[in-house]
Simulated assay, not measured.
Amino acid sequence: MATAYFMQLLTQMSEARTDQEHMEIYMISKPSIPDRTNYILGKSVQSPLSEMIWTGKQLKQLGAGILAIPCITAHFFHDELQDEVGLPVMNAVEETAVCLWNRGIKHVGILATEGTIQSQIFQRVLEGYGISSEIPDKEMQQIITDMIYHDIKEGKTVDIERFGRVSAELNEKGAQVVILACTELSLIKKDFPIGTGYLDVMEVLAAKTVQKCGRLRAEYRKLITL
């Protein structure tokens, strides 16, 4: 569902008035790629990198000039993937940090998979921009993990009150903005009126991809509402 929503965002964010003005997009959906979080956490010896490299090279052969990955945990492999494929790979983590820095945000909360949290790919990049971060405690992280793997991925309804509890905990720790740092969590923002104070990494990735390849609609130039 996350990839389908990413494609939707690319279309609705594009300043295109005719079919011919839209970006040319090549997509490969490859669910056989091993789970990124399980590998990062040492629960699996199957690295997803080789399959990601193969997929990137297929897209390159089709004519792609840049790659975008609507999976944030997969950004753990960003640099190796970019080097092996030989194409620029959009960096959603870096672009999110830039977006926050441009708005003067100094303290954020991170909602993501355990793989993204434990690998600290967000924390390290944010720190480089002078932005401190908070993560959920063990109990709250389990709520987010269950939502990602057992609700959203399985097509079930999310308990929005539980989601709100986790966000509130991060706000209580001082987070000015809560980052939806997993593209499955982007679907919560799409389907529920969760309010202000969030930054959706999927929206950041889509907007920056459109800026690289086409023209971005004006209403998507500011993605944080406070």
Rank of each mutant, 00 (worst) to 15 (best):
V98N: 09
C99P: 02
C99T: 13
C99N: 12
L100M: 09
L100D: 01
L100H: 03
L100S: 03
L100W: 02
L100A: 02
W101H: 15
W101A: 15
W101G: 09
R103W: 08
R103D: 14
R103S: 14
G104I: 06
I105F: 03
I105V: 12
I105Y: 01
H107C: 13
H107I: 06
G109A: 04
G109Q: 05
G109M: 06
G109N: 07
L111K: 05
A112F: 02
A112W: 00
A112T: 07
T113L: 06
T113D: 01
T113V: 10
E114T: 15
E114H: 14
E114V: 05
G115K: 02
G115Y: 00
T116M: 05
Q118P: 05
Q118I: 09
S119N: 12
Q120T: 13
Q120A: 14
Q120S: 12
Q120L: 14
Q120N: 15
Q120F: 08
I121R: 01
I121H: 03
F122Q: 05
Q123G: 07
R124I: 14
R124Y: 06
L126H: 01
L126P: 01
L126N: 00
L126K: 01
E127G: 12
E127R: 14
G128R: 06
G128E: 11
G130Y: 01
G130M: 09
G130W: 08
I131N: 01
I131K: 00
I131L: 02
S132D: 12
S132A: 07
S133M: 07
S133V: 04
S133C: 15
E134G: 06
E134R: 04
I135M: 05
I135D: 01
I135V: 15
I135H: 01
K138I: 11
K138E: 14
E139C: 11
E139R: 14
E139M: 13
E139F: 12
M140I: 08
M140C: 15
M140P: 11
M140G: 12
Q141L: 10
Q141I: 10
Q142M: 13
Q142E: 11
Q142G: 09
I143G: 05
I144W: 00
I144E: 03
I144G: 02
I144N: 02
T145P: 07
T145K: 09
T145G: 04
T145A: 08
D146W: 08
M147Y: 07
M147L: 13
I148H: 02
Y149R: 09
Y149K: 07
H150Y: 13
H150A: 13
H150L: 15
